[in-house]
């Protein structure tokens, strides 16, 4: 399916060289690989260092010059991270709230994005402007009023406090609205002529078309939620409600941070995000197939 895409031929040509078409693809493909590999080293190196550091002694992680490979694989850090904080519980809390929030944001963003892009109604632009505007106010000044609202709604120290603020995402709505613009109106009209109802069009035509963008949004939202520290910290009091970043933050004491333990914990906590990414990135390819089909 992926080979149906025009892009494999487009981009190498864009890389710009003369000569017969077939020869060009080969030559530029090699160049592509070389360039991407060189860049890839820069991108991947700190990540590998992070993973290897989870198996180092705590002094090796801050050695100068940095030590790349641990002198011998050492599981102390991972054991410490697992035992000194209630890692399993925090992990489960993070997973639960991030998953629920991500699913909710996908639904709400797609629906609102679709309505904003493809329907005409009063106050539409104003609504969009207001959604955008909420992204432009720095978080430090909203924290206290939002906390007071959480108190009023009796959300403190509940999972709802972690999920409710993430049910909508301005970023997601904006992103979906932009994407929905690129769906041709003729396509929707054709479906309407066929007698498809609006919810049906949304669920069966628009959502599948939006899969690649939804996949991207899912990755981002899951990651943000997974990493968020300040809000959970302010609204959660008891330890069995902690999320993973909160748990890892306790490796910072008054005077210094135990970088080795924090890094080991972060390495483990990155696994779900990577799984989400690897699973969802297939959707990019399937997305091409869908779009291609409707022609």
């Amino acid at each position: 399916m992926a080979t149906d895409s025009p892009l494999p031929t487009l981009a190498p040509e864009f890389a710009g060289s003369a000569g017969p078409y077939r020869g060009r693809v080969r030559w530029t493909t090699v160049l592509n690989y070389v360039l991407l590999l060189l860049g890839g080293v820069v991108m991947v190196f700190p990540f590998i260092w992070m993973v290897l550091s989870a198996f180092k002694r705590s002094d090796e992680i801050i050695a100068y010059p940095p030590i790349f490979f641990p002198s011998q694989p050492n599981f102390d850090l991972l054991v410490r991270v697992w035992t000194e904080i209630n890692f399993g519980r925090y992990f489960a809390n993070s997973l639960l709230t991030a998953t629920v929030a991500t699913v909710a944001v996908l639904l709400t963003s797609a629906l609102v994005g679709f309505v904003l892009a493809k329907y005409r109604f009063r106050g539409q632009n104003l609504l969009f402007v207001m959604v955008l505007a909420t992204m432009m106010i720095p978080w430090p000044v909203l924290l206290i009023p939002q906390y007071l609202i959480a108190v009023e709604l009796k959300l403190l120290n509940t999972y709802w406090a972690l999920i409710l603020p993430s049910l909508y995402s301005s970023f997601g709505i904006f992103m979906m609205r932009q994407f929905m613009h690129s769906i041709p109106n003729e396509l929707l009209d054709a479906a309407r002529i066929d007698g498809a109802s609006e919810p049906h069009i949304f669920a069966r035509l628009v959502l599948p078309l939006a899969t690649p963008v939804l996949a991207a949004l899912a990755i981002f939202h899951f990651m943000w939620h997974w990493d968020s520290l300040i809000w959970p910290l302010v609204v959660i009091n008891t330890r069995n409600m902690y999320t993973l970043p909160l748990g890892l933050a306790t490796f910072t004491n008054q005077y210094w941070t135990d970088y080795a333990a924090v890094n080991a914990g972060a390495t483990v906590s990155v696994i779900p995000v990577l799984i989400v990414y690897v699973v969802l990135q297939r959707q990019f390819i399937e997305g091409i197939a869908m779009t291609g089909m409707k022609a």
Binding site: L229, I230, L233, N237, T238, R239, A249, T250, T252, N253
Partner: peptide, 9 residues
């Protein structure tokens, strides 16, 4: 009920 909140936060 002891709550630990790190550093500046």
């Amino acid at each position: 009920e002891i709550t630990q909140i790190p550093g500046e936060e």
